[in-house]
Simulated assay, not measured.
Amino acid sequence: MRRPLIPLLVLAVMAALSGCATRADAGGRLPVVAAFYPLQFVSERVGGDLVTVTNLTKPGAEPHDVELSPRQVARISDAKVAVYLHGFQPAVDDAIEQNAAARGFDVSSAVTLEHADEAEEESGHEHGATDPHVWLDPTRLAAIGDAVAERLALADPPHAADFRARAATLRQQLTELDGEFSAALSTCQRRELVTGHTAFHYLAERYHLTQVGITGVDPEAEPSPRRLAEVAADARAHGTTTIFFETLVSPKVAETIAREVGATTAVLDPLEGLIDPDADYFSVMRANLASLTTALGCTS
């Protein structure tokens, strides 16, 4: 008569063990994978010492066309949460769909992706009509941080309050950064932002600038002679003094336009990946702000 109880006891033990398995690594932390740097940054800030975050894009690598090694795919399979941006990295999309579909978190569910600016139409870029670089608007990154906190809370309910508290701290820091940008960029002599590729739509929209991209969102796209002539004419008409190029991308196109119009070049970092190991999202964004205020003739 007691035999039917045995399977029930086994199931109860298995259920208890599966609940403990949410904290799977040797240090008792939640294993998380992040597709590229801004998502790594948010996951680490929100997760703190409760998570171990693996970035699927190596430092200094261009993330758009990343290819994953078998070891990275195994990391995705083992992760309790996989944070990514659907459509930005096809290889990551495929790996998560095949190995962690139920554990993947697409951050585009937390923000609205918008149409890219001019130059995108002739680039034929694989991302289609939307610009993925939402993290360059600190307020949108704050929304992503809140959403990541909820996803981590779902994976590790006992620490939900910790994740939410860290997300609130991150939101406050990003709000302060947003205030710095708003104040510094409110007094600029020029508001046209000429960039090597169209990665700064959200930054320009947030701070009332006009982005003029030489190429579309794809950093590898080659501009047509017609597009080069259009950008040069626009730069002359607005008295542009600086043509921006991005980290991880050749500056040759920006240098061509700069020579044509008698301007200088400077770096504006789209923060797709870090080169300096001592830098982080905040330091790079503040370096971007310094470059912008100089190039656009902003007064304090």
Rank of each mutant, 00 (worst) to 15 (best):
R2Q: 12
L5I: 15
I6W: 15
L9V: 15
L9E: 09
V10T: 12
L11F: 15
V13M: 10
L17Q: 14
R23C: 11
G27A: 13
R29M: 09
P31C: 00
Y37K: 08
Y37L: 06
P38N: 06
V42K: 10
E44M: 11
T54L: 01
T54K: 01
P59R: 00
G60C: 00
E62D: 07
E62Y: 00
L68A: 00
S69D: 05
S69E: 04
P70L: 00
R71W: 00
K80S: 02
A82Y: 00
A82R: 00
G87A: 08
F88A: 14
A95P: 01
N99T: 11
A101F: 13
R103H: 08
R103Q: 14
R103M: 02
F105S: 05
V107H: 04
V111N: 05
L113V: 07
E114G: 00
D117V: 14
H125R: 13
D131C: 06
W135P: 06
W135V: 09
L136P: 09
D146Y: 01
D146Q: 08
A149Y: 02
L152K: 07
D156Q: 06
A160S: 12
D162F: 10
F163N: 07
R164H: 13
R164A: 11
R164Y: 06
A165G: 09
A167V: 02
A168G: 08
L170F: 06
L170K: 07
T175P: 01
L177W: 04
E180M: 09
F181A: 03
S182N: 10
A183Y: 08
L185V: 11
S186L: 07
T187F: 08
C188T: 12
R190A: 07
G196T: 12
F200G: 03
H201E: 12
Y202E: 11
Y202C: 09
L203I: 11
A204S: 14
H208W: 05
T210V: 14
T210K: 03
V212Q: 12
I214A: 03
G216E: 07
D218A: 10
E220R: 05
R226I: 07
E230I: 08
G239K: 01
T240V: 15
T240D: 10
T242M: 03
L248C: 01
A254M: 08
I257E: 09
R259M: 05
R259W: 03
R259K: 14
E260C: 02
V261Q: 08
V261S: 07
A263T: 09
T265K: 03
A266I: 03
L268E: 11
P270R: 01
E272Q: 13
G273E: 14
G273W: 03
D276V: 08
A279S: 15
A279N: 13
D280A: 02
Y281V: 10
Y281T: 11
N288I: 06
S291D: 12
L296H: 02
C298V: 12
